[in-house]
Design a protein around this nucleic acid. Sequence first.
DNA 1: TAGATTGTTAATCGATTAACAATC
DNA 2: TAGATTGTTAATCGATTAACAATC
Lengths: 215, 215
Amino acid sequence: MEEKCISKAVIKRLPRYYRYLGELIEEGVERISSNELSEKMRVTASQIRQDLNNFGGFGQQGYGYNVPYLYEEIGKILGLDKTHHMIIVGAGNLGQALANYVKFEKRGFKIVGIFDVNPVLKGISIRGNEIRMMDELPQFLKEQDVEIATLTLPKNNAAETADLLVKNGIRAIWNFAHLDLDVPKDVIVENVHLSESLMRLSYNLNCYENEHEKK
Amino acid sequence: MEEKCISKAVIKRLPRYYRYLGELIEEGVERISSNELSEKMRVTASQIRQDLNNFGGFGQQGYGYNVPYLYEEIGKILGLDKTHHMIIVGAGNLGQALANYVKFEKRGFKIVGIFDVNPVLKGISIRGNEIRMMDELPQFLKEQDVEIATLTLPKNNAAETADLLVKNGIRAIWNFAHLDLDVPKDVIVENVHLSESLMRLSYNLNCYENEHEKK
DNA sequence: TAGATTGTTAATCGATTAACAATC
DNA sequence: TAGATTGTTAATCGATTAACAATC
């Protein structure tokens, strides 16, 4: 149990540590020092040690870190040792793509329902989940224990759908809609704004060009 | 033309400003002060002014900012006044979903080709683009002027595909594969690691629970 | 024990916020 | 002109890096 919620900057880096450790395990690496890991990941060794020590001492002086142990501990911190039930709200292209993505389940994120307003989609099955109509949603959430809702809807009805989800007990929203959701502070929102990501890429293209022109 | 590339923290916020300004335009708002905008966006007015002044003075003392003007200027900074040709490499669920997404084109990101290794997909048309096989890619890139490649492939052949793209003149990669690409420093990489996003959400769920238990 | 490497404190760096003079 | 609000400098805060004592 952590003492308190840790700075966002650190949390942002945790999944990347987890990924690299997973790869090291696959390569059969048993132990690693912060220095070796820092070279692999291109961050400072200092940052690695500082980050990890937010959660307690996972290493051993003179030895380094035990890879499988550290992997598991970070997994626990990220809550990957538990199963999270998830629904997808909005079964358009993106919603369906996410529903088809197998790896989420391997990490403990189990899709238990898919919803849409479009009657054309009703009953279509995606990896064992039939697409349901939105009016079934409140009843569904009463019967099932669902923590996370993935919001893959057009912006215009995303806000009211988020309200509905919160009202029916959803604890976290993975938001792909292009707006900032206004939810009670005990509801987690994690945004994935693809168009903003693409704009940043575009900026960097632009920026590099300008840098170059001057030379 | 900017003097130099600006801090990442600022760039990360630009698309959000752009989005809010776009909404204000739709509402018919002509001018806005940093204070009004700060309330809407829940950031400090100081930050808004500081951010914008990285690119020059867009406002006017005693008046505030002209909304359509500021919107256009930020658009220019983000390179949204130009058309960017883009290909999608990897026509799985996610690749196809992105190919179907209409809004990118509205922002100047035009998809001009879709590629995959799977012969089953060959010739399938998505919004006017037929899926091509990967071996056609080098020739395609010679004939067409493509800046951006969206990488929606499984991790295992993402690295070599990135090399191939770079070798054939791609200037930016929008990377959805779960690995860090190793490219020359003049090639832009913008990562979208969905599973990492989901892990952060999971952490926050976890963290909040622990906070609560203690009470 | 000697060597290695962590955990942790102190120093530096960068980003955010506050304050206010400039000016529309 | 007086009021409002920016642009910008200075102060604060937080995050990163460096250094080193603790210890395996």
